[in-house]
Simulated scan of single mutants.
Amino acid sequence: MALVALASAKGSPGVTTASLVIGALWPRQVLLAECDPSGSDVGIRMTAPGGTPLNSDRGLVSLAAASRKGLGDEVVMQHSQQLDGGLDVLLGVRSPEQVGGMGGLWHPLGVTFNQMQTGDVLADCGRISSTSPQLPIIHSARLIVMVCSATGSSVAHLRERLATLVHHVDAQLGVIVVADPKKRDAVKQVWSVLDAMSAPVRHRWHLALDPVGAAFFEGQGHGRLEKTQLIRSATDITAEMASLVSAQHGFDMAQAAFPQGEWNER
C-alpha cells in the first residue's frame, strides 16, 4: 500500500477538509493520519459512530508512547478510531506543546505508513516549512500533494516550497487548488506559474471551494453530501490519486464513499 501526504505552504487553504473528503471517497481501505503539529482539527470537527465524541487521548501521542516497543500495522490501528461514516483516523496532537514528546517518532512513522499492509495512508501534514518536525512524513510519501488557494500570496509560497521539495524527495508531486468552480481563469494562472517552474508537478487538480459541502466535514452539514460541488469535484481527483499510488482497481467508488447511505442523511 502507499502513503500520500497532503500539505500547504501557507495559511489554511483547506488541507484538513481536502484530506477528509478524499479519505471518504478513497476506493479502498485507508487511514487518515493527522500529522499537523499545530493541533488536531478532526477531533474537534467530527464524531465517532452514533454521534459520540472521539477519544482525544487516543491517537498520535498515545502511539508515540506505544512505539517504544516497535511500530507496525497492528500498533498503528490500535491507536486509531473510526469516524461516523466509516473512515479510520489517527488523531493528531491536541496542542503544539505535545509535539515535543514525539521524540524521534516522525521518521519511523513515515516508513511505517508507507509500508502498511492493511491499507493506504493519507497524511494531513498541515502547513510545512524547512524546519517542520513532520517533514519525515513528507519525505516517506509516494505522492505529495500541496494544497493552495488561487490567491497571489498562497501561490507565491507554494512556488517557494515546491522549489525546495523537488531537491529532497523522490515522490510524485501534485497540487490541489481550492477555488470557486467559476474562477477557472484564476486556476489556470496557478497552472501557468507551475509551468514556469522547473519542479516536475505533473498532477494538477481543482477542488471546488464549496461552503455547503465543507460544512459536512465540520459536523454541520445537511441534505445530500454527494450532490455538493465539493464531492463532485473531489470524486475524479480521488480516483486519479488512488490510481497513481496503486495498480489495484475494481472498487465501487460510490459504495466506498457512502456505505449504506450514512452521509446521505446528514
Rank of each mutant, 00 (worst) to 15 (best):
Leu209Arg: 07
Gly39Pro: 03
Glu240Thr: 14
Ser67Lys: 08
Thr235Met: 09
Leu31Asn: 06
Ser130Gly: 10
Leu32Cys: 07
Ala2Ser: 15
Met77Val: 13
Ala156Thr: 14
Cys148Asp: 09
Gln248Thr: 15
Pro133Glu: 01
Asn55Glu: 12
Pro108Val: 09
Thr238Gln: 06
Gly104Val: 12
Glu160Phe: 03
Ser140Trp: 06
Gly101Asp: 03
His79Trp: 00
Leu225Glu: 07
Ala2Met: 03
Val111Gln: 08
Lys69Phe: 11
Arg68Tyr: 08
Val111Tyr: 04
Gly110Gln: 05
Ser95Trp: 02
Ala48Gly: 00
Ser130Tyr: 08
Gly103His: 09
Ser38Cys: 04
Phe258Leu: 13
Leu6Ile: 10
Met197Gln: 13
Ala7Lys: 03
Leu6Thr: 10
Ser67Leu: 06
Ala150Cys: 07
Val187Arg: 00
Gly213Arg: 12
Met116Glu: 13
Trp106His: 09
Leu91Asn: 03
Arg58Lys: 15
Gly152Tyr: 08
Gly110Asn: 07
Glu226Ile: 15
Met102His: 06
Gly250Asn: 07
Ala208Val: 08
Pro13Val: 15
His107Leu: 13
His206Tyr: 06
Trp263Gly: 04
Ser40Leu: 03
Thr16Pro: 02
Glu240Tyr: 03
Arg127Thr: 13
Leu244Asp: 06
Gly14Cys: 11
Val175Phe: 01
Leu165Ile: 03
His222Glu: 08
Pro96His: 10
Arg127Glu: 11
Val169Tyr: 03
Gly100Trp: 11
Phe258Ser: 12
Val201Ile: 01
Arg232Asp: 01
Trp26Ile: 02
